[in-house]
Amino acid sequence: MSDDFVLAEQHEGVAIVTLNRPERRNGLSAGLCHALHARLTEIAASETQVLILRGAGRDFCVGADLSAAAVSESGEAPPARASKAYDIPLLLHTMPQVTIASIDGGCAGAGLGWAAACDMRFASDRAKFATGFIKVGAAGDMGLVWSLMRVVGAARARELLFFSQKFGSAEALQWGLVTRVFEAGELAGATLDAAQTLARFAPQALRALKTNVLSAEELAMRPYTEIETARHLHLAAGTTMREGFASFRAKRADGSKTET
Results as ranks from 00 to 15, higher is better:
2 S>C: 14
3 D>G: 12
7 L>E: 11
7 L>S: 14
8 A>L: 13
10 Q>G: 09
13 G>D: 14
15 A>E: 03
15 A>W: 00
15 A>C: 09
16 I>W: 02
19 L>D: 02
23 E>S: 14
23 E>R: 10
27 G>E: 02
28 L>K: 01
28 L>Y: 04
30 A>T: 15
30 A>M: 11
31 G>D: 00
37 H>E: 12
37 H>S: 09
38 A>Y: 02
39 R>D: 00
42 E>K: 15
43 I>T: 05
48 T>R: 05
49 Q>E: 11
51 L>N: 01
55 G>R: 00
56 A>V: 04
56 A>E: 07
59 D>K: 01
59 D>H: 02
60 F>G: 00
61 C>N: 04
65 D>E: 06
66 L>D: 06
67 S>D: 14
67 S>K: 12
68 A>Y: 11
73 E>N: 06
77 A>C: 15
77 A>W: 15
85 A>F: 08
87 D>L: 13
88 I>V: 13
89 P>K: 03
89 P>R: 01
90 L>I: 14
90 L>V: 13
90 L>R: 15
91 L>M: 13
92 L>F: 11
93 H>L: 03
94 T>Q: 13
94 T>G: 08
105 G>H: 01
106 G>D: 01
107 C>G: 05
109 G>Y: 00
109 G>K: 00
109 G>T: 04
110 A>H: 02
112 L>M: 15
113 G>F: 00
115 A>K: 00
118 C>K: 02
119 D>E: 08
120 M>Y: 11
121 R>L: 10
123 A>M: 05
127 A>G: 03
128 K>R: 13
129 F>M: 07
133 F>I: 12
133 F>A: 06
139 A>M: 10
141 D>A: 13
143 G>K: 02
146 W>N: 05
151 V>Q: 09
158 R>P: 04
160 L>A: 03
165 Q>L: 09
166 K>C: 13
167 F>W: 11
173 L>K: 04
175 W>N: 06
178 V>R: 03
179 T>Y: 10
182 F>E: 00
185 G>V: 03
188 A>R: 06
189 G>L: 08
189 G>R: 07
191 T>S: 07
191 T>G: 04
191 T>R: 02
193 D>H: 15
194 A>G: 06
202 A>H: 12
203 P>L: 15
205 A>Q: 12
205 A>W: 08
209 L>T: 08
219 L>I: 07
220 A>Q: 12
221 M>I: 13
222 R>P: 08
223 P>M: 07
225 T>K: 06
225 T>A: 10
226 E>M: 08
226 E>P: 03
227 I>H: 06
228 E>N: 10
230 A>D: 10
230 A>R: 14
232 H>T: 09
234 H>W: 14
234 H>Q: 15
237 A>G: 15
242 R>C: 11
242 R>K: 14
243 E>V: 07
244 G>I: 11
247 S>I: 07
248 F>P: 00
254 D>W: 11
254 D>P: 06
256 S>P: 05
260 T>G: 07
260 T>D: 07
